[in-house]
Computed example of a mutant assay.
Amino acid sequence: MSQTVRGVVARAKGAPVEVVPIVIPDPGPGEVVVAIAACGVCHTDLHYREGGINDEFPFLLGHEAAGVVESVGEGVDSVAVGDFVVLNWRAVCGQCRACKRGQPQYCFSTFNATQKMTLEDGTELTPALGIGAFADKTLVHAGQCTKVDPSADPAVVGLLGCGVMAGLGAAVNTGGVTRGQSVAVIGCGGVGDAAIMGARLAGASKIIAVDRDDKKLEWATDLGATHTINSRSTDAVEAIKEITGGFGADVVIDAVGRPETYKQAFYARDLAGTVVLVGVPTPDMTLEMPLVDFFSHGGSLKSSWYGDCLPERDFPTYVDLYQQGRLPLEKFVTERIGIDDVEKAFETMHRGEVLRSVVIL
């Protein structure tokens, strides 16, 4: 039997979000209903509300979440009722060309629930990133659930569902940072700071944080940056080169995703160095650069999708490191809020006052 719970819905572009009753169907084949314990407020949710993803309103927002499996549909054997899970938007299919060549972290055909959650009048909802977790409960595909240590704080580990994993993975998976390397991270919001944490975890010797906000640079230092650059008053490229002996960093991560920051990343790397783009550009952005510079600098130019993570491999590993005190994920939780406070949290996030607000349910 379907059930009615609270959910945060964006009905129209730019309109304030509303907490309204939503209807959750019983799980069908391959589906799971999860009782949400906590869900982070991510920029992607704001992009949905602003129509920056698509126009498939109304949206059920929220996607950085952890909770407990309440019920499972036919054929589900990967999780069971009572399992504590972190939700993800890369439910690996196992059949696409990426999966078949042994690269499931690039899966091109990820799964979502087949059935739709709805408003009480039957209007179908579009769940953010196929999750929709600013709600007491949500319906997802079983592959979107990754079991982790049930003693972990859901407000903390749920953030692996998007931004924190994107940053960690940009450094560790995509950038391949290794011991002794120099790393520069441009943009020190949640994703950039997670990349800094990942670089520290991987053993980078110099970790250079670049931002235009001194408060964000303070956060970056607390999370592992060894050097900071305020690009509002300093030429970031020249400063990075000065810190690295005139050469440039081995790996430069652009966590902003603008033409200006990508150029900074490109020219701030050492010869044969690596640039990782993890910040998401808008469709209208273009880049014009001399082609010869791409040839003469060598190295690698990479884009990082969700930190090139494999949830079933990476989530339990990072949760264990957090539980051991070796990965301070708790530092990303700036405040814990109620479900009625999401609109206010968007405003706080837009002003750059938090790393993450987390909705506790």
Score class of each variant (00 low, 15 high):
residue 313 R to I: 09
residue 223 L to M: 15
residue 335 E to K: 09
residue 345 A to K: 02
residue 114 T to Q: 08
residue 278 V to K: 06
residue 300 S to L: 15
residue 301 L to V: 11
residue 192 G to W: 11
residue 207 I to L: 07
residue 200 R to M: 12
residue 283 P to L: 13
residue 352 G to E: 13
residue 317 T to N: 11
residue 3 Q to G: 06
residue 10 A to Q: 05
residue 15 A to C: 00
residue 173 N to L: 09
residue 296 S to L: 15
residue 259 P to G: 15
residue 177 V to E: 11
residue 118 T to A: 03
residue 225 A to Q: 11
residue 295 F to G: 06
residue 198 G to D: 04
residue 46 L to C: 02
residue 256 V to Q: 00
residue 128 A to V: 08
residue 250 D to I: 01
residue 10 A to H: 05
residue 236 A to N: 04
residue 252 V to M: 00
residue 198 G to F: 02
residue 46 L to W: 08
residue 187 G to E: 03
residue 300 S to C: 11
residue 32 V to Q: 11
residue 168 L to H: 00
residue 132 G to E: 12
residue 93 C to W: 06
residue 264 Q to C: 02
residue 199 A to N: 04
residue 115 Q to I: 03
residue 338 G to P: 04
residue 184 A to I: 09
residue 322 Y to W: 07
residue 182 S to K: 10
residue 41 V to Y: 00
residue 101 R to C: 05
residue 361 L to Y: 12
residue 307 G to Y: 06
residue 21 P to N: 15
residue 266 F to A: 06
residue 257 G to P: 12
residue 350 H to L: 11
residue 91 A to Y: 07
residue 293 D to P: 05
residue 193 D to R: 08
residue 62 G to C: 09
residue 183 V to A: 03
residue 37 A to W: 00
residue 18 E to R: 14
residue 287 L to S: 00
residue 158 G to R: 13
residue 198 G to H: 07
residue 163 G to C: 11
residue 209 A to M: 12
residue 28 G to P: 09
residue 339 I to P: 01
residue 206 K to G: 02
residue 256 V to M: 00
residue 266 F to Y: 10
residue 229 I to A: 07
residue 83 D to Q: 08
residue 158 G to Y: 07
residue 309 C to R: 11
residue 244 T to D: 02
residue 228 T to C: 10
residue 284 D to A: 13
residue 360 I to M: 13
residue 258 R to Q: 14
residue 190 G to R: 06
residue 141 H to V: 02
residue 3 Q to F: 01
residue 10 A to R: 02
residue 279 G to P: 03
residue 32 V to I: 08
residue 79 V to T: 03
residue 126 T to F: 09
residue 264 Q to R: 07
residue 36 I to R: 10
residue 359 V to D: 14
residue 86 V to T: 07
residue 32 V to E: 10
residue 22 I to S: 04
residue 80 A to R: 14
residue 98 A to Q: 13
residue 23 V to Y: 10
residue 66 A to F: 04
residue 127 P to D: 11
residue 112 N to W: 01
residue 119 L to Q: 07
residue 78 S to G: 08
residue 150 P to N: 14
residue 212 R to C: 03
residue 293 D to F: 06
residue 37 A to P: 06
residue 306 Y to G: 13
residue 58 P to F: 07
residue 29 P to N: 12
residue 186 I to D: 01
residue 16 P to E: 05
residue 300 S to R: 15
residue 338 G to Q: 12
residue 161 G to P: 01
residue 144 Q to Y: 02
residue 149 D to L: 06
residue 49 R to C: 09
residue 324 Q to F: 02
residue 29 P to S: 14
residue 25 P to K: 08
residue 137 K to L: 04
residue 296 S to A: 14
residue 87 L to C: 00
residue 228 T to L: 06
residue 248 G to C: 03
residue 220 A to S: 12
residue 178 T to N: 13
residue 313 R to P: 03
residue 306 Y to N: 14
residue 275 V to E: 10
residue 286 T to K: 12
residue 48 Y to N: 03
residue 58 P to N: 05
residue 325 G to S: 14
residue 252 V to C: 00
residue 45 D to E: 05
